[in-house]
């Protein structure tokens, strides 16, 4: 796990992980380039479709162990935890 590649909310979320094999971390992956062909199968094993992985930023739901393997790839620039947003309408 390259912890320099994960943002503060993801660092905190990792502290709460009980099962490192459970896919419970919804993240944005920022890539510095296209993943090499060998890594496309690795991404598919992580649940990332090959088409999605061609984008400079793609989303994935990862286990802590999967995240660790991903951050060790040189083409992975940064990984951020997804945030829950709110609807901004109201009934006064």
């Amino acid at each position: 796990m390259d912890r320099t590649k994960i943002d503060a909310p993801l660092v905190a979320a990792l502290d709460d992980v009980k099962d490192p094999e459970e896919r419970g971390l919804l993240v944005f992956v920022h890539a510095s380039g296209s993943p090499p062909a060998d890594d496309l199968r690795f991404l598919e094993e992580l649940g990332v479709a090959a088409q999605a992985a061609t984008k400079p930023i793609f989303t994935a739901t990862l286990s802590a162990n999967g995240l660790g393997q991903l951050t060790d790839r040189p083409w992975v620039r940064y990984v951020r935890l997804s945030s829950k947003l709110r609807l901004v309408g109201r009934s006064p």
């Binding site: 912890r3 320099t4 590649k5 994960i6 943002d7 503060a8 909310p9 660092v11 905190a12 502290d15 920022h30 620039r77 940064y78």
Partner: peptide, 17 residues
């Protein structure tokens, strides 16, 4: 819990939680 990582490489700034 306080989290103080190094700079965010996307904007170069520090975040803390």
């Amino acid at each position: 819990r306080i989290t103080t990582p190094g700079p965010d490489p996307i904007n170069g700034d520090h975040q803390f939680l």
